[in-house]
Amino acid sequence: MDSNKKYGADLIERYLYAVAKRLPKEQRADIEKELAGLIDDMLAEKAAGGEPSPEDVRAVLLELGKPADLAAKYRGSKNCLIGPDYYGFYITVLKIVLAAVAGGLAIALTIGAIAGGRGNLLEYFGNAVSNLVSALFQAFAWVTVVFALMQRYNAKIDEKGKQWNPSDLPEVPAKKARIPKSEPVAGIVFTVLAIVLFNGAPEIFGIHWFGETHAFVPIFDMDVFRSMLPFINAVFVLGIVKELFKLAIEKYNLKLAAAVTAINIVSLALTLHVFASPAIWNADFITQLQAVQSFAMPADFDLVYHWGRVPHYVAVVAVFGCVVDTMTTIAKGIRYGRGR
């Protein structure tokens, strides 16, 4: 009998603790005290004046419900990491990013396996799988963290009291002004692929010979390349941000044009910083090629000279591409969307 009583008291204590620990500190003691009184009253009724049995205690706690649910009712607010406002977009982005990481890494790892030179193929395969899994988890975590922050930030500056005006509704975009989802999605997939290749398998940027022995002449100076990686990655991340803008705005308008212009200027500056200087390029590219497999130098085309000019060519192409992209976006923005 005495042990029964102790068991019941212990259950109650555990229940109260389970509820209280989920409540804000300043309310804990008060609510706990009140709930203890409530449980006492409910038990008294159940036992009809007698000594409540452990079964009575169990019944009363069951009636009160799961501690987590009860605490949630006290807190009132629905706590969620990513709410309905963001959930749809979150899932879309998550799918794209996970697919891109998986696809990009799979390609990079396959190339790595073909390029070989890493010993046991089985061991390599094992490593590859574990790399793939950890990359997928990382991608998942990062996307989730970003959206959780958006949720939190937005939840705080909730549009409370802000008047909604029907004229704020965005116009239905003209057909030509719409950006088909496939365009930014493809952009993101390729950019993630590029990130994976540049970071995970930089050795693919070069000329490979698969003869009796495997020879490799890199395009880049590997040390400089590695030191420049943060800048290269910044360019890629900016590219993804640009595509996300397209995905979110869904049509060409001035807002998108402004965002694209700003991003393009920054990423052009970074691109020029990295690729328009000779340092990152393998200065001995032509001579190393000659060493692997000698070939006749064309008489009317100075290969060594033109290899030295590569940074200039790259700069020209980068500037040209950037200008074209920016101008097109601005032109379309002006034509289709003075509105919001």
């Binding site: 309310q27 609510i31 009140e34 709930l35 409530l38 409910m42 009636e63 009160l64 419900g65 649910d69 009860l70 009712k73 006290y74 009132g76």
Partner: peptide, 12 residues
């Protein structure tokens, strides 16, 4: 009204 609903409601 279930106590589990009533008590939090009183607080609110």
């Amino acid at each position: 009204i279930e106590p589990g609903t009533l008590y939090p409601l009183l607080r609110r």
